[in-house]
Nucleic acid binder design. Structure first.
Lengths: 334, 334
DNA sequence: CTGAAAGCGCTAACAT
DNA sequence: ATGTTAGCGCTTTCAG
């Protein structure tokens, strides 16, 4: 590896002269600057990032901890985070918590030793269920900024990027009601997560407000480990008057659609379905699923911007940014 | 941040004593070791990774460059890489090339400055099309080990982890032939990639060897930007005697199945379909797609193992490891 | 058993 | 305009 010292020796100048020259310091003669740069280029000199970071006490690196990279929402968020971070001159170190609090804590510990300047993360399911967030607050207390996205906690005082989960589900339900649907099911496999609860509340509120709707809210919560397909099959068998489904996670909607078609239910004539965004599965269905679009790319981008602002002391307050969603009506709604 | 110096001052010993104590050096008295460790634990001391890396000239970090994180194959590979690396005490820094040679090169340059000990990567489409791999060879020449997985190049002399693409497609095609299929189409949207070519060759070979098969091989290559759905619709319209489809990428098979069902073709009675693995879409189809399973997790794991062996000088030769695939017959084959 | 000192590669205040 | 020096946090040789 080529170092400043190498360059200095070759050119018979001091290390500091070389360093200054490469930074276009006023102190150095144009002539020297040119010679230094020429040799640096020739030898493909690249400043050692570790040394620079150690010296400056900043790494230009962001630690990203996501619960599950095989979930398309998080993959997409990671994609956006990587893109925005790179464009702002930051690297990212990625860790996957696998929904486990222990792994989440390990990653936090592992990286909070000078490896990263701050964290962007979405809380593991286990952490959220137990609402044990001390490990994250510990990081904050070490003055390492954290930005939470999607899955957040009220017990953590930090920057947050979320969507209006309540409002999005409320609007989606209202749409189904406006179609005149009389038997609307809410389908969820994220019942215990903060976002799941908020979305369910949006559904409850919309139902409750509608004087003409006679049925009680009806939630089908699918637990981890349960077969989504079987639950949905059973649902259709148990009640053949379902005329509206709102799925608040990113898979059960597609599966419901597929099962409905298999049962020869006419979608959207006799049954409307609205899912929460996962655009990548849309190409696999016909008709195409109507969804609440989460603008995942915006969420990732906003998270990076918020963290970098913190890192560069442009912001000091902890704000919560709400990314707006929109209902995209495709083939599974009237 | 707590440093060795802090501990040393608190305990009235020297920095080197503290360092040695924390490493259980024989030179230090058990008593001192205990005191040092107790304080370190109390203050939650964590060695600064940058300093350690700088000192030791190794980072215990692997640079991972993948073409597209929204492709489920790569997301899964990344998942496996992260998992195995973590379990072996390595961190990963993730970069996404977005199939662009320029971004691939940027990442390589960015990280080859002491940030990582080695790379695991799959070549960007652009790089593979042009077969311009100098930027990768440049890294190798700097003695930074590289392991390539899935998309490789003969012009790069390094460790490689691949599947037997030729053999997998050959076997899959043979299976369709053994069912007595007489009009088998090969569907691909990765026509230009090395793996795509190899798989197509497997198909050609199987067809060629079968004396009873009268038709010529028939490849439908879908280009980037083309609508997969439209191409497949057109395919079914143009020829209503298709009785076998082998899809060698991880999406066109599912789409073909969906379109076939829409055209009321009886799968698998009148049409068999075999895809290349993308287990995550399986839950969305009925019948379930028969696939060549790529064992993506094994690919990721093997890549990490190969790289770490290189890093730890356990291996010196550049080997190519072939992960075996297997044909999983589900609902879309007889 | 413990400590001093050098050095990893870099930056920056402080000479000259 | 250029050089000297100190120091970021750590490890390790060598001296005591």
């Amino acid at each position: 590896m080529v170092t400043l010292k190498h360059l200095a020796e070759q050119l018979n100048v001091s290390v500091s002269t070389v360093s200054k020259a490469l930074h276009d310091s006023e102190e150095i003669s144009p002539d020297t600057i040119e010679r230094v740069k020429a040799l640096a280029k020739f030898l493909n000199y690249k400043p050692n990032r570790l040394a620079v970071s150690l010296k400056n006490s900043k790494t230009n690196t962001i630690g990203v901890i996501i619960p599950n990279i095989l979930n398309h929402f998080f993959a997409k968020a990671l994609f956006a985070i990587e893109k925005e971070a790179t464009s702002q001159g930051y690297q990212i170190i990625t860790c996957v918590s696998n929904e486990l609090q222990s792994k989440e804590n390990d990653s936090l510990q592992l990286l909070s030793n000078g490896s990263v300047d701050g964290f962007i993360m979405s809380i593991a399911e286990e952490t959220q269920l137990a609402n044990k967030v001390d490990h994250i607050n510990l990081i904050l207390r070490q003055d390492i900024p954290v930005v939470l996205f999607d899955r957040v906690s009220n017990d953590i005082d930090c920057g947050k990027v979320i969507i209006d989960d309540f409002g999005a589900a409320y609007e989606a339900t209202k749409h189904l009601l406006s179609e005149g649907r009389k038997n609307i099911i809410l389908l969820t496999n994220i019942d215990e997560l903060s976002v799941g609860k908020l979305r369910a509340n949006g559904y409850f509120k919309a139902i409750e407000q509608d004087k003409n709707y006679n049925k009680k809210p009806n939630v089908i919560a699918i637990n981890r480990g349960d077969s989504i397909e079987e639950r949905i099959e059973a649902m259709f068998k148990a009640d053949n008057n379902i005329d509206g489904i709102i799925s608040i996670d990113n898979t059960s909607g597609v599966i419901a659609l597929q099962k409905a078609l298999k049962h020869n239910i006419n979608v959207p004539k006799d049954l409307s379905i609205i899912g929460f965004s996962d655009e990548n599965v849309l190409q696999f269905t016909d008709p195409k699923l109507s969804t609440v679009s989460q603008h995942t790319l915006d969420i990732g981008k906003a998270s990076v911007e918020m963290l970098i602002n913190k890192l560069q002391n442009k912001t000091t307050a902890n704000t919560t940014q709400t990314i707006k969603t929109n209902l995209i009506l495709r083939g599974t709604t009237k």
